[in-house]
Amino acid sequence: MNAKQKKIVAIMPIKLNNERCPGKNTRLLGGKPLLRHELDSLVETGLCDEINVFCSNEAIVPFLSTGVKFLERPKDLDLPTSNFTQIFSSFISQKDADIYVYAHATAPFVKVETMKECIEAVLSEEFDSAFCAIRLQDFLWKNGEPLNFDATNLPRTQDLEPIYQETSGIYVFTKDVFEKYKRRIGVRPFIKEVSFEEAVDIDTPEDFKLAEVLLKIK
């Protein structure tokens, strides 16, 4: 199948009853609901055949960007114990595609260019998946032991081998990746390094305050 013929479907899972930061997904950030920031950017890429908000409550509909569809999901997926595999298994049973884009409402600063780069990397077929990450190049410890350096022969930090930490950002992966591995990152991933701002993930009221400050200084 030609890359241009591949169907690309985006999902943004949403629940309205957040435990750590109640109402965050629809709370205004810079004059528009939090979830609209990443939805608007997804629309702007022009690369998705469909963009869906996967939510158990139709009350989310007035907050959606133009062109974004509401897809109802089972209420049991709103439980705190629900995970990616359960949510996406339910979604993929209703929406077929060649490539999926898994987006998070809590990452409002992911750039359109970043999204395009991740989607195009998977479209190229050189990579089977793509995700955003921040680069860690510092002295890291685990279980009381150095993780990435020799404590008796300290290198310069710039000479340390970098470690990449996933951000919520977006995940792009083929249908085959999920069917084979039941995950969103395959065996040939493209890692898109992002800035501190793009990596911001809103989980708590303090995170929301940080996002508000970042918007003011942009």
Rank of each mutant, 00 (worst) to 15 (best):
K32Y: 05
A151L: 12
P146K: 03
T174C: 06
Y102F: 09
R135S: 15
E212P: 04
E179W: 05
E19S: 15
I51T: 05
E126H: 14
F127H: 09
I170Y: 00
M12Y: 03
I191P: 06
D40L: 04
A10Y: 00
T106F: 02
K75Q: 14
I87F: 10
V68F: 00
L123Y: 09
P162V: 09
N25P: 12
I99Q: 07
E179Y: 08
Y181S: 09
I170V: 11
F88G: 07
R20S: 14
T114C: 09
E19P: 08
P22Q: 10
P13G: 02
E193C: 13
K142G: 12
F208E: 01
P189L: 02
S124H: 12
I170K: 02
I14Q: 00
Y171I: 13
H104P: 02
P162M: 09
C21V: 09
K111R: 15
S168Q: 10
N2I: 15
G169I: 00
D203G: 12
F70L: 02
E50W: 09
I11L: 08
G30C: 01
A211D: 01
D78W: 02
D150W: 07
I170Q: 00
R135D: 15
A151N: 13
V122S: 05
D78E: 07
N17V: 11
P13T: 06
E117Q: 15
F127P: 00
C55T: 02
Y164S: 10
G30F: 01
F109P: 00
I87D: 11
V122D: 05
P205V: 04
G144H: 06
L39G: 05
M12N: 02
P155T: 08
N18G: 12
K75P: 06
V53Y: 02
C48T: 04
N143F: 11
W141K: 11
E198N: 09
D207M: 02
L16C: 05
L160N: 06
F190K: 12
K69S: 06
T85C: 10
Y100S: 06
Q5G: 13
G186W: 01
L16I: 07
E197T: 15
